[in-house]
Design a protein around this nucleic acid. Sequence first.
DNA 1: ACAGTATCGTGAACGACGTTCACTGTCAAT
DNA 2: ATTGACAGTGAACGTCGTTCACGATACTGT
Lengths: 254, 254
Amino acid sequence: MAVHQTARPDRRGDANATLWFSAPDTGERRAALNRERVVAEALALIAQEGVPALTMRAVAARLGVVPGALYRHVRSKEQLQDLLLDGVLAEVDCTIDRALPWADQIKVLAHRLRDVLADHPGVAGLMTVRDPLGPHSLTLAEAFLQPLHTAGFPHREAGLAFFLIVGYAVGFEVGNTRISVNEQRVQDPATRRRLHEFFRSLPDDRFPTLVALGEHVWLDNRDERFEAGLDVLVSGLQRRATAPSSDADAGLSA
Amino acid sequence: MAVHQTARPDRRGDANATLWFSAPDTGERRAALNRERVVAEALALIAQEGVPALTMRAVAARLGVVPGALYRHVRSKEQLQDLLLDGVLAEVDCTIDRALPWADQIKVLAHRLRDVLADHPGVAGLMTVRDPLGPHSLTLAEAFLQPLHTAGFPHREAGLAFFLIVGYAVGFEVGNTRISVNEQRVQDPATRRRLHEFFRSLPDDRFPTLVALGEHVWLDNRDERFEAGLDVLVSGLQRRATAPSSDADAGLSA
DNA sequence: ACAGTATCGTGAACGACGTTCACTGTCAAT
DNA sequence: ATTGACAGTGAACGTCGTTCACGATACTGT
């Protein structure tokens, strides 16, 4: 720490050479801490060590700064998470070929959203507790709603479908927190074997179907699971779109 | 992942061992602290003050005991959460009239699951991180799989549908953490008004559909949302059940 | 050019958290 | 009566988010 005091000016140390010829105003501030740098470093940290490692102290350490310094740029960890979330959502490509059938547009967007969330493990968990209203979140919402709207979904139905799809993609990735990129404890064969064994050991008088279906219930291929579930969802939406809510539809509302 | 049942031969029987195969119970200890009392108190705490208030120290305090004492009965907070989760899932009534159409059976079960999760706000969040393999979780899985199986879904499809439905119900309640029963900040009218105002203030050149659909996108009636989403899901499943994957289904694999 | 001021990072602390551990009682069985 | 297993105690350790007075720095208006 004592090294730190003397090391602190070193950030602008090599810049002193060029300092006297008065860099133009457009010249960037000398690597000062700002909100963007904090968020970017938090993103890097989350990408490398996972969400549980997202710690004010850890972010501060990576920036070569004392923990309390972060609070000059971010009000709380909660706010940092909000910024983080919108930063991640910004990575979703929202451009889409509007010539495609609306169902395909939805599927493509859902896949993109899922991929981005999968690239930042744990971030999906943030979306369940802080609902995203940042600019990029809204852009994403717009991208989803546009096909639904032109497909003829009325207001409430479109909103419903939107939440359904996004909620599916988010919910699918929630809890997918592989600690590190190196530590692949996902799909650990030993764990899977023990799981299968566990299923076979179940008493088939109490769980006949469970034993009958066996280990096939717990699908290991996540991509396949996402794809299939998405197909079911969109199928249901298509059925709604073609047959617009005429019959016993709101029958058993609470 | 994390079946988490590492065979650790402890003196008093391993924690997870009693999750399954009712432990011999060995006659009641004195009016002493036992695992059941700890779990029960944690459930009461979670019901009164919400999941974030679930703290080892808080549970200990309610039991009139020092924090470290809990570790005689529970290996860690993580395990306490597992026990908690299975305790909550035990409240789901899994009896169902098998004369009903399979789609209705699924819907009834999903509603019951949702209701129980809503009764214990925040518990759904536990399910996303600790996948439930306790006895009551398995009973619930059996209840869901039985109608799907008799409906003719093949193995993988049944498993997929099961995860889809349960994941939907769980995901729907995840993040529904109203802090206290008294503090009803959910559906706060002021917040809702500000939200509507916010939507009207959006630039309609960047978010045309979003502005057009307006505040109807954010449905306030959660019951209606759950019901409608569930209908869409089951619709999609029905389409699959009747027409078993024939047409352009795997067209746009990534 | 200089004083005034706004801002930034520091260092140290506070309280709460999960968890551990040596110790002390309190019984049941020998 | 001695032993010994065990439940609960008290105190600590290391972590976390957050706050705050204090200097140091950079920018401003005059």
